[in-house]
Write a protein that binds this DNA or RNA. Sequence first.
DNA 1: CCTCGATGTGGAACCGGTTACAGATATAAA
DNA 2: TTTATATCTGTAACCGGTTCCACATCGAGG
Lengths: 329, 329
Amino acid sequence: MATIRDVAKHAGVSVATVSRVINETGYVHDDTRKKVETAIKALHYTPNEVARSLFKRKSRLIGLLLPDITNPFFPELARGVEDEMQENDFRIIFGNSDENMKKEKEYIQTFVQNNVVGVIASTNHPDTDTYRRLNIPVVFLDRTADNRPSVYADGCEGGRIAAQEMVARGSRQITVMQGPTHIRPAQDRFKGAIEALSEQGIAFNVVMTSSFSFTEAGTWAKELFEQHPFTDGVIASNDIVATAVLHEALRLGKNVPDDVQIIGFDDIPLSSLLTPSLTTIRQPAYDMGRAAANLLVRLIDDVNIDNKTIQMPVTFTERDTTRKVNQHG
Amino acid sequence: MATIRDVAKHAGVSVATVSRVINETGYVHDDTRKKVETAIKALHYTPNEVARSLFKRKSRLIGLLLPDITNPFFPELARGVEDEMQENDFRIIFGNSDENMKKEKEYIQTFVQNNVVGVIASTNHPDTDTYRRLNIPVVFLDRTADNRPSVYADGCEGGRIAAQEMVARGSRQITVMQGPTHIRPAQDRFKGAIEALSEQGIAFNVVMTSSFSFTEAGTWAKELFEQHPFTDGVIASNDIVATAVLHEALRLGKNVPDDVQIIGFDDIPLSSLLTPSLTTIRQPAYDMGRAAANLLVRLIDDVNIDNKTIQMPVTFTERDTTRKVNQHG
DNA sequence: CCTCGATGTGGAACCGGTTACAGATATAAA
DNA sequence: TTTATATCTGTAACCGGTTCCACATCGAGG
């Protein structure tokens, strides 16, 4: 690889001048600039980002920490982040945290060691030292931390909507699936749902689930219908769990939505492809990713930002696992 | 952030000694080592990877280039890569190429500028200068390039199997969907399928598709049944397209698999969750990712490697969009 | 013709690590 | 006691950029 000194020699100028040309800083005579530019082309020179990063104590890298790219909700987020970052000439160091604080910590550390200029993280513990001590901007994605930069959808509101719509469509023996206790958005949805049900005086059961994996979700779905066989409405903590519930219901010969209604959360690509297609509370994942990236870029550039916490809308996405509302009033 | 000089001062030794302690190289007296270690802890010192990388001309970063993380086949791959790399203390710079050579080139360039020590790429053009000129190891993933390090499943063989199984299950008016012409694995599958059909003297139609997006796939599915209404078997170029075909068939009131059989490719998580669940040619995506990462790590460590191209098995995964074979012999 | 600000360029320090090399001491062998 | 070798430590150059500062030249205004 050619270095800036090679270019300088080839062009018959000093390294300082070459640097000025590449960065378009300071004064450079037109003729000189041309000499340098031809030298750069001749040697196929591209500046070494590592050297730059060392001196400036700033790279063009940002860290992205997501729970699990294998969970279909996250690729959309990731893609949103990537597209926006790409357009702003940032690259992404990526890691899966598995909702595990130790892994998170390790990743954040290596991010810092690599001079990243910002971090986007889906963490359940934004208030730990791991994040507080960072002296680079952090944007929390799909998670909130009061008053710190974050992009998220209102899980609580989503849960409420799910409950209301389910009741409006006639379910009276509702089972709410409580997602993993250590995952914040799951708890918000749960809280929203049971609050709304309580307010309306509707009885409900609760089934706990302890992860979002496809394989385990089946077990909880079985458990649900064993423990609460007369359930006529299930509010799941996300679309993965909802899918498992749907499958189990069909396996048991139940008619969906006539015997059981099901509402999921997220609207992952899979949801619209199921039969019957899944009614869900949609989060605009791609847009959330983009918004988070955009916010981070602005924080990096130290733009004055009025609105550091961006709440994205959740929308009730009516499909075929719920009945039509006018059938029941 | 504390630097190595801070640590040296705090411990009353030279930077060289500190460096020796961190890297466990050369001689260091036990007492000295302890002094340094306490200093490191006291100052919360972690070495700056950028400075290291600059001097050594080698980082602990690798580049991962995938077509589109939003396509459900790739998160599994990515996760496999990440897990293996994590275990070997490498971090990943990630990018989506959209099967677009220009984007690829840009990414590869920035990878190099960041001193990555290796690259894993799903490219359709492994023989371009972009990859040939690289003087760091490259592993092609889900793609081949003769005799260069790669991990892939045999698309051709997969296509053949799909064709054979479909014929064995009684379809005689088969439509083969040809994936995007610029995507190698898609063409391999297509070739394998039509070869096998020709050998067996079975007539077939071809429908072209030009991307793997969920939204567009629906259009081609419609086209398929308009142009070839009597099709009784569809070999799709991947599970996304197969899903669209399944939906269209059901919409048209066809019985699957009795009127039309459908075979997909990949076995993405979605496939087993459809109704009817999708018969497909499975690629072990996660394992492929892991294998590619493992191979790259060995190449980086300059281990003598006998087997640089790893072919993973494709397996016929029988589900409910095909009939049982004994029904037809 | 002189002065001054704008323009143009290069030398060298610096970012935070690693390592070649030299010098010092301790220990073992002769 | 001398010599050879192993152990231990520090100085300084180096990786490839950026930028401060000093110095030189040029054109305009007095």
